[in-house]
Simulated scan of single mutants.
Amino acid sequence: MSSSDIFLGEVIGTAVLILLGGGVCAAVTLRRSKAMGAGWVAITFGWGFAVLTAAYISLGLSGAHLNPAVTVGIAVQSGEWAKVPAYFAGQLLGAMIGAALVWVSYYGHFLAHLTHREVVGGPGAQTTAAADRRRSDAPGPVLGIFSTAPEIRNPVQNLATETIATVVLVLAILTQGLTEGLALSGTGVLVTALVVVGIGLSLGGPTGYAINPARDLGPRIVHALLPLPNKGGSDWGYAWVPVVGPLLGGALAGVLYRLAFA
């Protein structure tokens, strides 16, 4: 496949991935959404279905990496790095487009949520906490729709969690024969989606399981740029963890595959 096909496929696929994945986070989080409060299980299955849909759409164009960690894992295992920049560029741009589409789709709900008295401060609200969010780079009240944040902020643990979870994801993909010249099948796409659900249920609790640098960085950039009132900070102090951890996990999965399965 050509670099242009790879770029286009990754832009489209990753945009759909973030639109549906970020969409379920918005549905569960935002006031006056019919799914508000649906909980973690809804989010994990929503992201699994997002992977399933996005991978089916982009499979024929780019092979449906949709994730720099997957691209790195395949490159480490195969030794083929020439097309990695096209994958990375498409994934980041697609993630930003997908995040912007979530904002468009839930525009009224973002405004209703971010102008609610509990967010802006008012009678009965946690005024001090709301003001602290506005003054700092701490995660804002809707940042979780766009990117991840840990429940316990410990960079070493958070990095380890993201690395371990990504090793599981990329190893599950590599063992389907991608590095042996075989195309990911429809069944393989389904298996990968179920693996993402499993990771979310089992390992998603500590950090929100980014397991994908583009999925976290692209929407975080969009959050920082969007004209949302009272949105709070984009938490750039944490942003390196969901980038470095998954990239490290993807590379480790590629090495492990070469040692154990090649």
Rank of each mutant, 00 (worst) to 15 (best):
M1V: 13
S3V: 13
D5Q: 14
I6E: 01
V11I: 12
G13T: 03
G13N: 00
L20S: 02
L20R: 03
G22D: 06
A26H: 00
R32T: 13
K34N: 09
A35K: 09
A35C: 11
G37D: 04
G39R: 12
G39T: 13
G39A: 13
W40I: 15
A42S: 14
I43F: 08
G46A: 09
W47R: 08
F49N: 12
A50P: 08
T53N: 13
Y56A: 06
Y56S: 09
I57H: 01
L59T: 06
L59S: 13
L61C: 09
L66S: 04
T71F: 01
I74P: 00
I74Q: 02
A75N: 03
V76A: 03
G79H: 08
A82D: 11
Y87V: 07
G90F: 04
L92D: 07
M96R: 04
L101D: 10
V102A: 03
V102R: 05
V102P: 04
Y107V: 14
A112V: 09
L114W: 10
R117I: 15
V119F: 11
V120I: 15
G121H: 04
G121T: 07
A125I: 12
Q126L: 15
T127V: 15
A129N: 07
A130R: 12
S136T: 14
A138W: 00
A138T: 00
A138S: 00
P141W: 02
L143I: 05
P150G: 04
P150H: 08
E151A: 12
Q157G: 06
Q157D: 00
Q157I: 12
N158R: 01
T163Y: 09
I164V: 15
T166H: 13
A172V: 15
I173C: 12
I173D: 07
L178I: 14
L178P: 03
T179G: 14
T179S: 13
L182F: 05
S185H: 00
G186Y: 06
G186K: 06
T187E: 03
G188Q: 00
L190I: 14
T192P: 02
V195N: 07
V197P: 06
S202D: 15
G205E: 05
P206K: 02
P206T: 02
T207G: 01
N212V: 12
N212F: 08
P213A: 02
A214S: 03
R215P: 06
D216I: 09
L217Q: 08
R220W: 12
R220S: 11
I221F: 10
I221M: 14
V222E: 02
H223K: 10
L225W: 09
P227L: 02
P227Y: 03
L228T: 03
N230W: 07
G232S: 02
G233D: 01
G233Y: 01
D235R: 11
A239K: 08
V244K: 04
G250M: 06
G254C: 07
G254W: 04
L256T: 14
Y257F: 14
Y257M: 05
A262C: 04
